[in-house]
């Protein structure tokens, strides 16, 4: 097994996630794409953990998963708030910071 087959798989997932974040207007879909990015990172961590036979890789994956769960919780709360205020979760419309 090559190390790179996992790393490239992760890189592809990461890039797809970036594409999703940049093209999606729907807030929930943006959050989903962010999950994709986080998962790509996790694959890297596990792959390097396997390469060095070090348990830390897995431990960090657990931490990332926990942080991601927290992020989804807060993120969805924000999306809900936006929806309640504007009857829409189109992030393209949330541009009050316009200069």
């Amino acid at each position: 097994m090559f190390l790179n087959q996992f790393l490239f798989f992760a890189a592809i997932l990461f890039s797809i996630g970036v594409y999703g974040v940049l093209t999606r207007k729907n807030g929930v879909l943006v959050l989903m794409s962010i999950e994709l990015i986080l998962n790509a990172v996790n694959i890297n961590l596990v792959a390097f953990g396997a390469l060095h036979q070090d348990i830390s890789g897995q431990v960090f994956v657990l931490f990332v998963i926990a942080v991601a769960a927290a992020e989804v919780g807060v993120g969805l709360a924000i999306v809900l708030l936006i929806f309640r205020n504007r009857r829409s979760i189109n992030v393209a419309e949330a541009d009050l910071l316009k200069g």
């Binding site: 790179n4 990461f14 890039s15 792959a47």
Partner: peptide, 27 residues
């Protein structure tokens, strides 16, 4: 725009991954 960003990111990452690890095998 998204496509370009994603592809360029992948290009950068893919190049550096290949440079760094090439055909390294897992134990």
């Amino acid at each position: 725009i998204g496509g370009l960003s994603a592809v360029s990111m992948f290009a950068v990452m893919g190049y550096s991954l290949w440079e760094a690890f090439g055909t390294d095998e897992l134990p």
